[in-house]
């Protein structure tokens, strides 16, 4: 197994994972989407809502606001000592109270836990006109992506195969492929055609179409994957990758343990 990290920021990561099976790469992707627990608003008590949005719509909008998550601090309600009744170990309450005229933003949600707050402050929730009011208490809990998309910590997480571009001897340096490539993968260097940034290639095959001599061939490496992970900010990209892999490892260990008992 080989790993090359191309980019690792708080909310975005890009890395090349090679010498693994497609199944392993896909399991990592699936685990990042559906097995990393995240806090999201799941229950709302509405005391007053005279805005133009129905209670249900307002609640749905609240649920989709990404919250900063510290999964070590909280438990899943079903696994909690309170048996799902709701306590400080498995839920956080956020209050919202606003009166028009104004636009209610995610920053207006006041959380009982200073660590579990909306990641982005400027997400508009509803616009209130003069005299309109919204007063509510929302309850956030841990969940995972299998249950609802609001519990997914990643917004764009996927991979593509590493392209294998080969330039044959037939190349007559017409430079048509350089213009045809939308990603600017090719470059003329000292009278020769070279590939500058292989990982940028989107496998669109425009270069092959543009080439009259048929000098360019494009293939994919089926054991190498370029991963892109974008998070919603609830965790850092590093923590999501780490926690997804740990969850997969945990289940493999569990199965191995069960099989040993037979």
């Amino acid at each position: 197994m080989k790993l090359e990290i191309l980019e690792l920021k708080d909310r975005k990561a890009k890395f090349v994972l090679s010498e693994v099976t497609p199944a392993f790469a896909n399991s990592l992707r699936r685990a990042m989407i559906s097995d990393v627990p995240k806090m999201a608003i799941d229950y709302v008590d509405i005391y007053d809502n005279t805005s133009v949005l129905f209670d249900e719509m307002l609640s749905l909008r609240l649920g989709l606001i990404p919250l900063k998550t510290n999964a070590d601090m909280y438990r899943f309600p079903a696994e909690c000592e309170c048996k799902g009744a709701g306590c400080a170990l498995c839920q956080v309450s956020l209050t919202l109270s606003a009166e028009g005229p104004c636009v209610v933003h995610s920053r207006d949600l006041k959380s009982s836990d200073p660590e579990t707050v909306p990641v982005d402050q400027n997400i508009p929730i509803v616009e209130l006109k003069t005299g309109q009011k919204v007063v509510l208490t929302a309850v956030a809990r841990l969940g995972n992506g299998k249950e609802h998309a609001k519990f997914q910590p990643v917004c764009a997480s996927g991979y593509k195969n590493v392209p294998v571009i080969s330039i044959g001897e037939k190349c007559d340096m017409c430079k048509m492929c350089i213009d045809a490539c939308p990603r600017g993968v090719f470059k003329a260097d000292k009278g020769k055609l070279v590939v500058t940034d292989l990982y940028k290639c989107s496998l669109c095959k425009h270069c092959i179409e543009a080439c009259d001599t048929g000098a360019i061939t494009l293939d994919t490496d089926n054991e190498a994957f370029i991963f892109t992970v974008e998070t919603d900010g609830s965790y850092t990209a590093h923590d999501i990758i780490d926690s997804a892999m740990k969850s997969l490892k945990g289940r493999a260990d569990q199965l191995s343990e069960i099989m040993s008992a037979f």
């Binding site: 197994m1 080989k2 790993l3 090359e4 990290i5 890395f15 994972l17 693994v20 392993f24 990592l28 990758i241 780490d242 892999m245 740990k246 997969l248 490892k249 493999a252 260990d253 199965l255 191995s256 099989m259 040993s260």
Partner: peptide, 21 residues
């Protein structure tokens, strides 16, 4: 049993490699 421990080892390899890189 062997396959699941192999898979677990592979995950461990990834975790080590990832934290190092």
């Amino acid at each position: 049993k062997k396959a699941s421990s192999r898979l677990s080892e592979q995950c461990e390899d990834f975790l080590k490699l990832f934290s190092k890189k």
